[in-house]
Computed example of a mutant assay.
Amino acid sequence: MAKIIYVLNGPNLNLLGKREPEIYGAQTLDDVRAMCEAAAAPKGLEIAFHQSNAEHVLIDWIHEAREAAAGIIINPAAYTHTSIAILDALNTCTCPVIEVHVSNIHKRESFRHHSYVSARADAVIAGCGVEGYLLALQRMATLCADA
């Protein structure tokens, strides 16, 4: 039986590939989903892939993941820097959490340098483009195997 990994994406990531391609690249969120699904299967993982611009919807998925998931990979996007509510929801989870950012948030505006989510994350991957999701899946497979 495959272990389910929730891959959660925050605001504006639905515009990946269209919004600021010089920062975020040309691949779309559908491309990322396909990459994740293809990479997960050989590792015995199944992907529950979601995106929302609404904070409360992301929190509802985190609550759902508490019961259903072996791990959470989350790109909270702008909520990274503002959402104590997402941090609180993640803190209720006992499964591994990996934070992903397409861009290197530490090379950008100073307000992007702080992440509330990092306080809970077991790993943080930033600045690797959409390949960061694949790196997160690789690490998640290791964390799930060790559990």
Rank of each mutant, 00 (worst) to 15 (best):
K18P: 05
S103P: 13
E55V: 04
E64C: 08
I62F: 06
I84H: 09
E99H: 06
L134K: 13
H113W: 13
I59T: 07
V7K: 00
L135T: 11
Y79P: 12
L45H: 00
D31N: 15
S103F: 03
E67R: 10
Q51T: 05
V117Q: 09
D146L: 07
D122E: 10
Q138H: 14
A68Q: 15
P21K: 02
L29R: 10
L87S: 01
I72A: 12
N75Y: 01
A68W: 02
C36S: 06
A54Y: 15
I125Q: 11
V97E: 00
A54R: 13
E67L: 10
N91T: 00
R108C: 06
P42V: 03
I4W: 05
R66Y: 08
H101I: 10
V100L: 04
A41S: 09
A34I: 10
R66Q: 15
Y133C: 11
R19E: 04
V117A: 08
Y24G: 07
I5D: 12
A26S: 14
V100E: 08
E67V: 08
G44Y: 07
V124G: 05
A2E: 07
T142W: 04
L13A: 08
K18A: 11
N104A: 10
I125V: 14
P42Y: 02
G44N: 09
A68M: 14
A65M: 14
E131F: 15
D30L: 10
Y116L: 14
E20H: 06
A54V: 14
V130M: 10
A69Q: 04
H101T: 07
T142I: 08
I47P: 02
C144L: 10
E131R: 15
R33N: 07
I23R: 11
A26C: 08
A89P: 10
L13P: 01
P42G: 02
V57A: 14
S110E: 13
A77T: 04
D88E: 13
L134P: 09
